[in-house]
């Protein structure tokens, strides 16, 4: 955009065009739901309901998860956000009394279809848990564990994969000299990044993070959040968190769950500055209606 120099009319005949600075967007703005195209959608949930025995945990959830974005699920304890997250890699199958209805499509594939191998699904949908849960093995073995499950692989290739995963989890520089030491000797923050490295070593499409920083100190939390930010260029990330500020910091989209319902789902900007639902507003601002 240019404007003409006012003096130019009288002083000289040439129009001197000067560059007028346009304000830059300081915060990355994710496209609003109405701007989503079909190819942006990685996971499509439709009419998902889940009950533990007679107790309903999720009611008619429908949402779309955008590829290579961070989607946060927030809500008070017991609202079903972790349950919803665990639907995406069918972790709820481990509980006997669970009944699920509705559809979850991962890149167009219904994950509850009888032809789907749960182990295969979980290799495509990695998960990181609330408490760091490294195996009581060496750092190297922890990262190699998931890779080895997929079949025999030459040592050099495995080495490369472990290094790649650790680098992507921003842990390589810290552990490169002690790959054979026990993972249990690491700090909590390092353990959590190791678990992330373990999850991305098998190159999933989706990463599910279940309160990944709730057991960590602020510095480690910041590192994890920075890591999430970097990882979203390659992975579709879903994060469940108690910490609203964390959701505000790391996510592009936020869904607010309350009593098993998806009350509101929009860009994080909207949810945190101007939510439409009163329940969301109350939760976000620290009120209880």
């Amino acid at each position: 955009m240019t404007i003409e120099n006012r003096d130019g009319d009288s002083m000289n005949t040439t129009n001197v065009a000067i560059e007028v600075p346009v304000p830059q967007s300081a915060v990355e703005v994710a496209p609003a739901p109405h701007e989503w195209r079909d190819e942006d959608i990685c996971i499509e949930v439709s009419d998902l309901s889940l009950a533990y025995g007679e107790t309903a945990a999720l009611t008619n959830i429908s949402m779309q998860v955008v590829r290579q974005r961070v989607t946060a699920l927030i809500g008070p304890s017991g609202c079903g956000k972790s349950t919803l997250l665990r639907c995406f890699n069918r972790m709820n199958d481990l509980i006997d009394s669970v009944r699920i209805s509705g559809r979850i499509e991962l890149n167009g594939m219904e994950i509850h279809a009888p032809t789907v191998d749960v182990a295969q699904l979980r290799r495509r949908v990695g998960m990181v848990f609330q408490r760091p849960n490294p195996f009581p093995k060496s750092i190297y073995e922890n990262v190699a564990y998931g890779v080895r499950l997929q079949g025999r692989i030459p040592k050099s290739e495995l080495d490369d994969r472990v290094e790649w995963a650790l680098k992507n989890a921003a842990l390589w520089e810290e552990v490169r000299d002690r790959l054979n030491e026990s993972a249990l000797g690491m700090s909590g923050g390092q353990q959590q990044r190791l678990v992330i490295a373990r999850a991305i070593a098998i190159q999933p499409d989706v990463l599910l993070l279940d309160e990944p920083a709730s057991a960590l100190d602020p510095i480690s939390t910041s590192k994890i959040e920075e890591l999430i930010h970097q990882l979203k260029t390659d992975y579709t990330i879903l994060i469940v968190t108690h910490n609203m500020q964390q959701a505000a910091r790391v996510s592009d989209y936020t869904g607010f769950l309350y009593l098993g319902n998806l009350v509101e789902y929009d860009t994080t900007n909207i949810i945190f500055t101007n939510p439409t639902q009163k329940q969301t507003e109350d939760y976000i601002t620290g009120r209880y209606g």
């Binding site: 972790m91 848990f129 849960n133 195996f135 564990y145 998931g146 098998i202």
Partner: peptide, 15 residues
């Protein structure tokens, strides 16, 4: 043995 570790393994696609 905590559920965390078992789930950690299952989540990596282990049977």
């Amino acid at each position: 043995i905590s559920r965390d570790v078992r789930e950690g393994s299952l989540a990596l696609g282990a049977t």
